[in-house]
Simulated scan of single mutants.
Amino acid sequence: MIQKKYENAAQAVEDIKDGATLLVGGFGGSGLPSHLVAALVEQGAKNLTVVSNNIGAVSDGVAALISNNQVRRIICSFPVGPHADELIERLQNGTIELEIVPQGTLAERIRAGGAGIPAFYTPTAAHTELGEGKESRVFNDRLHLLEQAITGDFAFIKGHRADRWGNIVYNKTQRNFNPVMATAARITIAEVDEIVEVGEIDPEIIVTPSVFVHRLVKLEPQREGTVLVNG
């Protein structure tokens, strides 16, 4: 078991190497581990394969990694929008590969990776362009596609509160892709708003057990003018 660390985001991501596969939690801006992503932009690892539901805004999320020429391949559900111009440009010049995966299939591929299931069949995307070239089989008179599990070298997740062992609870819609991604990576790094002592979190509300969390980063409140905001 890797020793859990309570450090700043820069220290938490410093050993991510070129060519790593990275899972990034969040659904839009909800539950996005933006401080860890920003730290990786500063760290500069390149040729990354990034798995995320969407690419985010140009200044935030996976789009920031794209802007910094750190991404070689993206696996996501929602790459479109006004923030996708740089992605489209890189797709056209061949510097980035894009794999679009239906949202439910993406979540299940990650969940399967965390559960040790190498592949599964689903009817989603059968008879569409997304299903072209994939192994298929008929179950109950319906065509199903074989989908491969997804795992990562690292996962970035965002939680609300953790104890010092790494047991995590989430605030409302933070509980999107973060829990499944935590199980599917060799090293999971969590940014949280608060770290408390073991026993201060009701075990019944823990969503991600500490066995899946290797590093914790507590977000420090930042002052903007006279208003205290939580980063």
Rank of each mutant, 00 (worst) to 15 (best):
T151G: 06
L65F: 01
N93K: 14
K17M: 10
Q103I: 13
E132P: 14
G225I: 01
R142Y: 11
I66A: 01
V229G: 05
G225T: 05
V24R: 09
N178V: 07
L98S: 01
T208F: 05
V24L: 09
A184G: 02
K158A: 15
G25Q: 07
V192D: 01
V192C: 00
D141G: 10
L87Y: 00
T183G: 09
V211I: 14
L23D: 00
G61N: 07
V211C: 14
K4S: 06
I117F: 02
G81N: 09
A119K: 12
V229K: 12
Q92K: 13
G199D: 04
N8P: 06
A64T: 06
I74D: 01
A182L: 05
T151Q: 12
F139T: 10
N178P: 00
G81L: 06
V62Q: 09
R73G: 00
G166V: 03
I110Q: 03
T49C: 07
R215H: 15
L143Y: 03
G61R: 07
K218W: 08
W165Y: 14
F139V: 11
E86D: 10
A125H: 10
L65E: 09
E14Q: 14
A112P: 09
R72P: 08
E86A: 14
V207K: 09
S34A: 11
V229D: 07
V138I: 13
Q222A: 12
N176D: 14
I66M: 04
N53T: 13
A63I: 06
E129C: 13
N68P: 04
